[in-house]
Design a protein around this nucleic acid. Structure first.
Lengths: 378, 378
DNA sequence: AGTTGCTAATAATGCGCATCATCAGATTGA
DNA sequence: TCAATCTGATGATGCGCATTATTAGCAACT
């Protein structure tokens, strides 16, 4: 029935104590040697229960406390739909975690968008302050933007592995390397030897990791790495046919659906003539699309794990936490960088190599030394 | 480079004015006859530009201003996935609108969840206060919860039409009635006469509206309404066969996919023998699912429109707005209740009635008076 | 009796901002 | 020339909370 917000002062009045006492009771422990008797504590708790008091997050935050609000900043804009399809699952995981943690989520949709990318501008990061901490997702470029966060000691967690610059940045990533290695293993087990990699020359972490996985997987079997990197899907398909690949691994951003169509247009059936493994989920699942074999990125779990991690960082950073630092262990160094397994997907685009089609009929690895199509720094 | 937040006081110092002056400049107009000369105004704006100042939303909100944060409360929990699939599109539209409005979104994931439904408890609504206003989506039950919002004059907008209780509640809904009527029209145009309705006895607004649309559509053509309301999908299919329906309209929550399978198992092909029109989108689109004919609910647009409406209500309610109320028109009464058209979807589950199969071969409406399967209050 | 030590609480302060009440100085009117 | 009016700004206050500094009360020593 109250027209006005119920404040700590209201609760205090009802319990016959001061506002400060209510605050102390709510925050559990006693900052500077302040103690509250069990009796008054109960009286205050009763008053809270009766009035249905809940803290005003804005005030909490302003006073330097925690508002139980965690932020989500997405570098990619929500539109066009494409990115939304990709980020949706992360959000689902994040929301689920938020539900379990009992926190609200703040989506920073106000940040200015320039050519499809959202920027964390100098002033933009000030708005992050309403939230106790923030999740960052997507490829970002600006190094300087991050420096601010580091400097101000604002808690944040990246979703997606950070490579070169990642030393001090907490993140939850996916094991693209391991996932890709396993795909090579699968193909080899099916008898494939001429396995191509269709990849963009992106410098983003997932691409780098997939390439690394491919290299190391092929090397492990003594096979030669062969990259196909053409802009045009049709040209790529032609190249695959020319090179007599019996299998290719493809990153989702390389239009696998169209690629398979092109292959079949050239008389190569998938997977009968050519196996195609997808290194991640299709970006734009469409009606009647193929049922891809490959691995999947545990996006929901990544989102959830990232939020849990953030939540722990936040409580570690809170002033209260620093005082009791000795009691409970802080977030372990090891937890700051989490890499999640990308489970294999059994679809319909992988099949045993056709022995009459492969250059060699025996099962032993191709051991003729060949030069790599690319210079390999490793 | 600043370690600390930049505040209005910082800006004021740089511009050689008082903090209050900065606030006035930022808020544009002059609350109580306060005037700022153009010259100082420029000096302040320059200082803001140089420092990259941005208001602290928490402080703004605490001081009774607007934080440029709009809330989203979902009555359905995010998990299980089902509801997420349904609510996702709304969120997409909402996010898009938020981007354009330059506001952040606060998702109230902290509200307690009981058997899949999130509750807006007495204390929970206090947390809404961080946001300037709030979007409510999903079926809610508790009348009392809403009363609070009304009482406190907190701006909010429902997504989804409000029926009985809707008089004073602003909402953006979908025209289920009209959409359903059009489906009947389509079927009749295809020669169908025995058109059944497969519906749950739900009392939610969409269900009520679909039933109303079906009734009025059938009546318009002088046809008899025939409802099938069985718990079991198999039994429903059997009933459809028994009744020799040549077409049925189905609500998405009634497992249309399974229903069609059951029909075909009974030797009735869809759409050759029985046309099936879906009254909304499939709730769980699955790989290789049917390409449904029917209508679609413009969920993204609903989300976006709702946020725009909310944004306008918020600025109307702000104290500043009330002062200049005479200058710009407030939100018109008419805009408070928006009903969006549900566009037809041309899928593959509608076909002309097979004349050899229908009880009558002529094209004239069935005019033999028959009693309704149900009592029709209309 | 006076000092120390301890418990249990309160008063006071500030976070950053919006807003109201006030005020100094310039201009006008009689 | 002195009050009345207008212009352009400032000071003070409070939003609701966390936190620090302070105090009141009381038992235990010396």
């Amino acid at each position: 029935m109250p027209r006005r917000r119920i404040t700590q002062t209201d609760v205090a009045a009802m319990a016959g104590v001061s506002q400060a006492t209510v605050s102390f009771v709510l925050n559990g422990s006693t900052p500077a040697g302040v103690r509250i008797s069990e009796e008054t504590r109960q009286r205050v708790l009763d008053a809270i229960r009766i009035t249905g008091y809940t803290a005003n997050p804005a005030a909490q935050r302003l006073a330097g406390g925690l508002a139980q609000i965690l932020g989500v900043f997405t570098y990619e804009a929500t539109f066009p739909r494409a990115s939304r399809d990709f980020y949706g699952p992360f959000l689902v995981g994040i929301e689920h975690a938020a539900e379990r943690l009992g926190v609200d989520l703040l989506l920073f949709t106000s940040a200015p968008v320039a050519d499809g990318r959202r920027r964390l501008t100098r002033d933009g990061w000030q708005r992050l302050g309403v939230a106790d901490g923030c999740l960052l997702l997507g490829q970002h470029e600006d190094r300087g933007e991050l420096q601010h966060l580091l400097d101000t000691n604002y808690p944040f967690v990246f979703i997606g592995k950070r490579g070169s610059d990642g030393g001090r940045l907490p993140y939850v990533g996916a094991d693209y390397v391991g996932g890709t290695v396993r795909q090579i293993d699968r193909l080899v087990a099916l008898g494939h030897r001429r396995i191509g990699y269709v990849g963009m020359r992106g410098t983003d972490q997932p691409t780098l990791d997939r390439v690394e996985g491919y290299r190391s997987g092929m090397k492990g079997h003594g096979l030669t790495t062969r990259f196909v990197e053409l802009d045009d899907v049709a040209a790529t398909a032609a190249e695959i046919v020319d090179q007599r690949f019996t299998a290719v691994v493809v990153a989702p951003e390389n239009h696998p659906e169209e690629l398979a169509d092109e292959l079949e247009r050239r008389g190569r059936r998938v997977p009968d003539d050519v196996s195609v493994l997808l290194l991640g989920q299709p970006h734009h699942p469409r009606r009647g699309g193929r049922n891809w074999s490959g691995f999947s990125v545990p996006r929901e779990e990544m989102g959830a794990r990232a939020l849990y991690l953030l939540s722990r960082l936040v409580s570690d950073d809170s002033p209260r936490r620093e005082r009791e630092a000795s009691r409970t262990p802080a977030v372990a160094e090891a937890d700051l960088h989490q890499i999640l397994v990308c489970p294999d997907v059994e679809g319909g685009t992988a099949a045993p190599a056709r022995t009459d089609d492969t250059p060699r009929t025996d099962d032993t690895p191709d051991d003729t030394p060949q030069t790599d199509d690319r210079t390999d720094p490793a």
